[in-house]
């Protein structure tokens, strides 16, 4: 019963989150560009409607099955990733003692979904987007796993409820502030945005999206936004104490914190420059990965001394 309730709330959460993300996606760039923001509320729906009624395109001998499956897989991964997020100690859509392992699997399969989307078109620009995303998606995922392990240490569990409960005294963002930054980078990477958008970038004329139109493109865009919402909720849970908070019910706190992370992610996606992929790959391995090791060690030492 509570599980059904959790699933319903979660679907609502996902829908509202996607709508909010779509609006932010117009409002924040407009803010940076110094253009009027007033159309940000209504424009996303009109744009989605326009995409929905445009016909789908086709290429010469594409991998049709893969092309259809890619956005479906991507969207499903976002929903599954979100389902392990607890709304309160007992209100979880998919109660799991190994929540972060499940989330990690969703991250890993995202690379597959994005690759499939670019591969299937049998066209050069999407293909390049597909291959280069793998180069960045894999090490970025590694980062996030070290960060998540750092969050699991004080909880002595891989379950997300326990991870939230372990933050009653102090949020994980205080224990590992750099961890939050690294996890936000992963968020940009799995939702293909800004400095980590190596699959759908401008210099490849939209990359994996270059050959899709109509409902096919709409479903891809929705899946990207869904993943963004999902990763925001996960960040809020692991670093910002999830449903913990005074007075208001748990899921309201979770929604508020997720919204905050969502704004931060969209802003970061619009604010920072993207390196060419070769430079980014070295940067990830040689700078960020050692940083995540250090972060993990710091949390370990802290627990041994004061834990």
């Amino acid at each position: 019963m509570t599980q059904m309730l959790a699933i319903l709330i979660l679907l609502l959460f996902l829908t509202a989150g996607i709508a909010a993300a779509a609006m932010l996606d117009r409002a924040i760039p407009a803010l940076v560009a110094g253009r009027p923001m007033k159309s940000s509320l209504s424009a996303p729906f009109a744009v989605a409607a326009a995409m929905a009624i445009a016909p789908k395109s086709d290429t010469e001998h594409p991998d049709r099955v893969g092309w259809v499956l890619a956005p479906i897989l991507y969207f499903t991964l976002a929903a599954v990733g979100l389902s392990v997020v607890p709304l309160s100690p007992r209100l979880v859509a998919a109660p799991s003692e190994v929540g972060i392992v499940l989330w990690g699997a969703c991250e890993a399969l995202t690379v597959v979904a994005v690759f499939l989307h670019g591969w299937s078109a049998n066209a050069p620009l999407p293909l390049m987007g597909a291959y280069r995303y793998v180069a960045i998606g894999l090490p970025a995922m590694l980062l996030s796993m070290f960060v998540l392990i750092g969050a699991a240490l004080p909880a002595q569990s891989l379950g997300l409820v326990e991870i939230v409960e372990s933050q009653r005294d102090v949020w994980n963002v205080v224990r590992q502030p750099a961890g939050l930054v690294l996890f936000l980078m992963l968020g940009l990477s799995v939702s293909l945005r800004g400095p980590f958008d190596y699959a759908d970038p401008y210099d490849l004329a939209g990359g994996t999206q270059a050959e899709v139109s109509g409902a096919a493109r709409l479903s891809w865009r929705l899946a990207r936004l869904a993943m963004l919402v999902s990763v925001s909720a996960m960040t809020a849970t692991v670093f910002l104490g999830g449903y913990l908070g005074p007075v208001l019910p748990g899921f309201v706190w979770l929604a508020l914190k997720s919204a905050l992370v969502l704004v931060a992610l969209v802003a970061a996606g619009n604010w920072f420059a993207r390196m060419p992929p070769a430079r980014m790959m070295s940067f990830l391995w040689l700078a960020l990965l050692p940083l995540s090791f250090l972060m993990l060690a710091a949390v370990g030492v802290e627990l041994l001394l004061w834990g």
């Binding site: 760039p29 940076v32 110094g34 970038p201």
Partner: peptide, 16 residues
Amino acid sequence: LLRILGLDAHADRLQD
């Protein structure tokens, strides 16, 4: 150049 670096909003601002 900014557009190639993924900075569409910045590019719009310079354009304007």
